[in-house]
Nucleic acid binder design. Sequence first.
RNA 1: GCCGAAGUGGCGGAACUGGUAGACGCGCUAGAUUCAGGAUCUAGUGGGCGCAAGCCCAUGGGGGUUCGAAUCCCCCCUUCGGCACCA
Length: 856
Amino acid sequence: MVERYDHKRIETFWQKEWEERKAFRVDHTTEGEKFYVLEMFPYPSGRIHMGHVRNYSIGDVLSRFLMMNGKKVLHPMGWDAFGLPAENAAIQHNIHPARWTLENIEYMRRQLKRMGLSYDWDREVSTCSPSYYRWNQWIFLKFYERDLAYRKRGSVNWCPRCSTVLANEQVEDGLCWRCESPVEQKELDQWFFRITRYAEELLEYTYRLKGWPERVLVMQRNWIGRSTGAEVIFPVVDSDEVIKVFTTRPDTLYGTTFMSLAPEHPLVERITTSERAQEVRDFVQRVRAEDRTRREKGLLDKEGVFTGAWCINPLTQKRIPVYVANFVVMEYGTGAVMAVPAHDQRDFEFARAYGLPVEVVITPPGRRLDPSTMKEAYTEEGIMVNSGPFNGIKSTEAMDRIVELLEKEGKGRRATTYRLRDWGISRQRYWGCPIPIVYCDGCGTVPVPYEELPVVLPQEVDFRGGGISPLATVRQFVETDCPRCGRRARRETDTMDTFVDSSWYFLRYISPFKEDLPFDRKEVSFWMPVDQYIGGIEHAVLHLLYARFFTKALRDIGLLDIDEPFTNLLTQGMVCKETLRCPEHGFLSQEEVDGKRCRMCGREVVVGGVEKMSKSKKNTVDPDSIIDRYGADTTRLFSLFAAPPERDLDWSEEGVEGAYRFLGRVWRLVLENIEVLRESKPCDGSKGLEGFLKEVHHVTHRTIKKVTQDIGERFHFNTAISAIMELVNLLYQWQGGKDSPIEKEVFREAVETVILLLSPFAPHICEELWQRIGNERPLYLTPWPRFDPTALEKDEIMVVVQVNGKVRARVMVPRGAEKEVVQDIAMKDPKVMEWTRNKSIKRIVYVPDRIMNIVV
RNA sequence: GCCGAAGUGGCGGAACUGGUAGACGCGCUAGAUUCAGGAUCUAGUGGGCGCAAGCCCAUGGGGGUUCGAAUCCCCCCUUCGGCACCA
């Protein structure tokens, strides 16, 4: 019996070794062929979860693979360390957010090190450290100078549970993205980043990011939500006021029969006639009190009220009534809609409800529409009618022509609107980056001078009060002198959204010690953009859009010379597991189940569907316990083998055992042959190899080729691993001895190859075996193996023979044989003869060295 | 409603540009080893018919293109994800 595979000892040993030798440190020179591998940094919530394990395993395989292939690889790790959970923990457990966060970082760093990840820990960055967030403030000031940061009072999303404001991107279905509480609206003074200035560029570049998954790009396009059309001016009758509308359908302008304003529209108050005033005011108040989410989701019936005012259709000069309607939102377009009931479903419903006229201006080809009997709006294109000079032309053509007419007469213009809103970054919480602004009664809003940065977050704060920013209670913080006039002034007490922190952290990794600037220009132009970014799909819009915006803004400030931060993006799937349920006690964890029964009540447990691991469903698996039991190598191997990275992964204990078994097989393969391996060199070339030896040599090189392509080109780690398994299986088939030099050499080459190819996945065991077979140089400094094309060539090749598309035989032919030669061989095959007997051959298709199809 | 992704054995998944469907792993079955269990090794494992050689069927369903389709085209169904009174 050989020594057993002791993962604990091996993994501890090699982790210490890598750490002491600073194996994965990358110097600050800017020479060589660079590759920047980045994984989304974690929030230090306490412990890592399987999603992290998967994310970081993917990055590590790639990183180690590229290092062995001679690339200069930057592979850093850090902490997205500001955020609400720290503050909530502080409130619940009376521990300071800073301590809570730092302790979590300590713990999680140890967990990551236990996974054997190849990070350059010298570049570790933590966003809650003043040496990091001072540059947040610095960038904020640069944004402020360029009017990319501004303050405005407005209706904002308020999460009562988190007692803070949320950006639009952080509201999902009307619920807070973090705690799922219903979001309310509040009027507050808030800081915004003018991301809308980049709306067009952000959109345009989604068509150039070839290395991003299509679905992420689509989500971003939807989010930016560009629509093109026209802005049209409708003068109000007996008034100097005009109503501006945005429409994507200028072709329907002649069919406008009324006007709808958003209840929040400023004109409502000004144009409503006195006899309608009370009714309108009641209506506006009622709608504004309505549940915002229901209103936004379109769940309410179309309702409205007449203002008493009329406006003029600029093309027809017809008077049309102005309504206030609950389905018009102030935030989009101009907050006013020209209503064309015949050609817009919402307007149609509204018109029917209030008895307003429906006028058809576009007819479907070859059909006529009757306004009195229409059941729904006709929204397709067609032929123009009742549209003055445009009658008879196609509606698609009329679009442009009508806009031209409007522009000529000064009644409107071509216009584009976006769904994207500016990014509200103020947060009424403590544990975040202070906004470097001072308010002075004399000077107004004054930026903190650069030389006074950082504005340090004070330690002693009572953050238990709800509703206002905790910093507002700290007098020593709030009270300051105006940097401009020196008189007493007040500091801004909100902190920044933590998505600001993560919008540029990948730049700080490049020069984490830079004192005078956020990052070093020269180093950044060497390393950026990130060549491969890896993370979860949940950031498809949030973080990934913000980081793109930051990159463009920093470029325009003159700090960067790239347009996009991430060349290639890999969005890994979720880690899922089956759920267990007790009819009485709900979801159960593995520990709460005894056999097939609930430990609490003894009732039979229902095995539910495979769902994303979550605490609430109690189907999580703790990485620590898996690493304890099977080791980091097994854990990594399984999470990469069970599914391709972008797909969801079903966690299975049996699968983990399978991975463990495989590593055991590799371990025994080496140790059972340790003498043979030690006393030989790998063979060089395929000369003189016959039979099984030739087969082993051939498969060895075929595996090098496949694994190299699967890792480097396709990220198909699962198939790479299965190819290595096949090679190992073949070596277990070795029947004869390993006595002659040639046998030893072939075997040694094959085993070395297995170790090298497996090392990015399972680095500890491979490093150990590599050393044991007598290598001095550590594996992580050893070049990746290259395949020998001549070893891949076979003299004889199996060709599949089909008759009428059905496989009937397989024949061996010399490689590269002519069609006629193969045909002769095939026709002599008894099976083929049987199927072609008494039949006339119509055609023979031959794909060289692969397949022959005989059509009879 | 619109947009996107995906449907392959008992399960996770292979099949690169149309060319042996089911690699690899899990699970299951049998054998070897063992006092026994575990571990390990070997063999088998899509379905149907057959003693067997073998034949037929099979990649969500239906049609088509092709010598040949999981892969290309058309129609439909299901699941997941995103957006949605967006003018």
